[in-house]
Design a protein around this nucleic acid. Structure first.
Lengths: 328, 328
DNA sequence: TTGTAAGCGTTATCAT
DNA sequence: ATGATAACGCTTACAA
């Protein structure tokens, strides 16, 4: 910057004004500075800039696993929206371990970010973020409410979505429906189970506990769970799965068992339409979620005050056929 | 930091030494400083640190689309490796537009990154990176060689993989094989087409130009292309697709057409095993690629000198059945 | 071992 | 409109 000033024959402040696109510089000097910048290939040192101004023009996004298509889409959307505002995006996977997750978050906060979007591990206590929040870092949570902290949240209507799935299956004539709930994801999984039960109630059907089973996304575990379900006196004719990883595992298990019950899965997934039969899903829109999260975060950064918001997005039933198989 | 020093009753440099985990501090003072840090909830300002030392402890990753599962996995792996070294990762999607891509890269470089991993748009001229490279930013390219720049590259053996696919189809008895090549991705697509032709040569079969068609990943375009192939005098009994987006589009088109030719696709994809029949693929391992890219980048950052490297990773034929359908 | 002070590249304040 | 100068928070000679 000194070099630029020297070459342009102006003072440091003038260069700074030009670089920061501030007014109050004569056309002539502005031109001179711009030329010097071009000639010297100068670009502002963002660290000095940040040190001085306090804003890093960077936001952070922490998700459990970037490689999960849902989160990948979420990150993608946020990054797109950030680009529009000339913000850079730091990403990190928090992984399955809450302790590691805290380490990851802390490392991020080290960077005096303008804002942070977090999909935290559901068990993780994030009360340690309170100090940062107090200190001015805007934080928006996605998918699950933070434990130990009041903060903005973008989530989907898990109950409603699950109830829609049940209604769809009931309409196709099913009376005995099982719910395969993913073991991880306590919050979302529980909300979806609750919606499942509500859906049964709405249809005047009993919510039999033996028809709600916890599985992880391991195919063998799903095979086992399905065998047990079918060994019941009154076995289910339809299945509801609480997330796409479970849906996929169940589909693989069903192929192994050569079984073809009706099925509706929470979360849409790529190639659902190519399954045999095509899989009906309750879609949550990662684009809309990311957009809402980024939007709220940017509003907060811009100074939006007021109490914590909790924005709930709807889900959409995508009928493809697997939910309409008749019982039996 | 001043506060910490005051509270601990020591000088600034002592605090700095403790924070930077440098030796030469007495046990007593170190303890005092650590206590003061804990009490005050102090954490080092990374920008001041970077301003002083020059290293941001941050790397950048630029891919064409984060939401693409392949790149999501790549980013995930790189981020994982970065975490081990306490590095943070900036990500950005360069999109399909080379101009926008240059903007994205420039914005990243603004941050004096320790290193950069890039999957550039294939048409994009990245010669503007030469100055940065000269200035010391380590850059590793992935998947496609950069245009207008000599730099490290991690890629897969596209020719070999494609030739393997052809060999597999030939072994199943196919003599007329079509190649559906994705229109984008000039470099990879061309390499894979070359491999396709080589595979035919190896089998003593002619490479008929009318059997190599360019499609994008639009289902209608694939339907059209397939119809034309089947209107040939001697229509193909097997298909080779040059990437997973194309493979998926072709699968959707085949369902619409209710056609069941043999098929091998370049790139593995989730649920390939649940297709009907399960889809045989040439898998490139995004984990291995990310690992290699991160490894080389870290080596360069650590001072590894020497000429540009070009690391080629192998592919793996995953036989699932779709390639073994007999002709006719 | 410890502290003092200079300086990293900016921007903000204040004269001019 | 412009420029000198003092921070921003840290590291690192150098001196003690």
């Amino acid at each position: 910057m000194k070099d630029v000033a020297a070459r342009a024959g102006v003072g440091l402040s003038t260069v700074s004004r030009v670089v920061s696109e501030k007014s109050g510089v004569s056309r002539a000097k502005r031109r001179a500075v711009e030329r010097a910048i071009a000639e010297l290939g100068y670009s502002r040192n963002e660290f000095a800039h940040t040190l001085r101004t306090g804003s890093a023009r960077t936001i952070g996004v922490v998700v459990t696993r970037i490689s999960d298509p849902f989160y990948a889409q979420l990150v993608s959307t946020i990054e797109e929206r950030a680009q529009e505002r000339d913000l850079l995006v730091l990403v990190a996977s928090a992984g399955d371990d809450p302790v590691e997750g805290e380490r990851v978050l802390r490392r991020m906060l080290t960077r005096r970010l303008d804002g942070l979007i977090v999909v935290a591990h559901e068990e993780a206590d994030v009360s340690f973020l309170a100090a940062e929040k107090e200190a001015g870092t805007r934080i928006v949570f996605v998918d699950r409410p933070p434990r130990g902290l009041h903060a903005d949240l973008i989530a989907v209507d898990n109950e409603r979505g699950a109830a829609d799935a049940v209604a769809h299956l009931v309409q196709a004539g099913h009376r005995v429906i099982a719910c395969l709930a993913h073991t991880s994801g306590r919050f979302t999984s529980e909300r979806r189970q609750a919606g499942f039960r509500q859906g049964l109630r709405d249809a005047g059907l009993p919510a039999r506990p033996e028809l709600i089973v916890a599985v992880d996304d391991d195919v063998d575990a799903c095979v086992e769970a399905l065998r047990e379900l079918w060994s019941l006196d009154d076995p289910p004719t339809a299945l509801f799965t609480t997330n796409s990883r479970t849906t996929k595992a169940v589909l693989k298990a069903l192929r192994l068992l050569d079984a073809h019950p009706a099925l509706v899965g929470f979360d849409d997934f790529d190639l659902a339409e190519l399954m045999n039969p095509p899989v009906t899903t309750i879609a949550q829109d990662p684009w809309a979620i990311g957009d809402a999260a980024a939007g709220l975060l940017f509003d907060r950064i811009a100074g939006l005050a007021g109490p914590e918001r909790r924005i709930t997005l709807g889900t959409r039933l995508i009928v493809r056929g697997s939910g309409e198989l008749p019982p039996g």
